[in-house]
Nucleic acid binder design. Structure first.
Lengths: 133, 133
DNA sequence: CGTTACATTTACGTCAACGTAAGCTTACAT
DNA sequence: ATGTAAGCTTACGTTGACGTAAATGTAACG
């Protein structure tokens, strides 16, 4: 019903963040909720941005880095030169993500290996205690 | 040649971190270089740990979280119950990594899509200016 | 009309993760 | 013996990302 606009509380519940965090992000110009008198109303655009912000954080990006990246997802009513600049930045970022993916795969492999190792170790203990007396 | 032990400076160069950072990690018990008199000497084990620390940081883990995880990669001269506990923690962590990979894939897809979009937009500009006069 | 619930601004506090400066050893080269 | 280069400890400073408290506003409910 409040499909278009959401209050700050609804946002907190929906994204599991505090009101302080949302106001903080606004102060840092990561989101730009509109005002109804004093109160903030968060648009669909704010929600899309917040989603990306939280995702970015999970990947270890700083808010400042995220702010740069967010512009990539903005509307494209820009000049050609602007768009080209955007394109290059985005491509660089994509490279970063892909590299991170490779690292993640490595980490997963490592951990899996460790798990098997530990698993065998446990089996050893089981053998010691099998067929008791 | 100094294959087994490295000075702090060598570590800094090898891993691109400051001496302060290494001492800080030692204070936090993430690494435990041995001492030759006053000076620190970093072992193979320290290097392996540091590698994991830096990797963890790139994935957005706090040093405290990393400290927990490091124990998983330690030697296995432990009790069975300890090992089992370790196993469960590691498995939980593995789940986390896999979830993060899915998110990463999503992010990569999103960004790729955006790139295509921007690319088309740029093409539009090119069309406007093609075959001029 | 009072109060309860939810919102706002302002501003100081906090915690992690180091940076940075001061002052002191130790080892080696000049 | 004197730099000077590398390392050490101690301790205060900084930055990012909010937490938290105080004072205030507004809307609806009973």
């Amino acid at each position: 019903m409040t499909d278009e606009l959401m209050t700050i509380r609804q946002m907190c519940d929906a994204f599991d963040v505090t009101a302080r965090t949302l106001r903080f992000y606004e102060a840092k110009e990561l989101i730009a909720p509109i005002r109804e008198g004093q109160k903030r109303l968060f648009t669909k655009r704010d929600r899309a941005r917040l989603k990306l912000i939280l995702r970015g954080k999970r990947f270890g990006f700083s808010l400042e880095e995220i702010r740069q990246l967010l512009d990539l997802y903005d509307r494209g009513d820009q000049q050609k030169t602007q768009l080209e600049r955007t394109y290059e930045v985005a491509q660089g970022h994509l490279e970063g993500l892909k590299r991170q993916r490779e690292e993640l795969d490595d980490a997963i492999d490592d951990l899996t290996e460790q798990l098997n190792w530990v698993s065998e170790k446990i089996a050893t203990f089981d053998d010691d205690n099998s067929d008791p007396k």
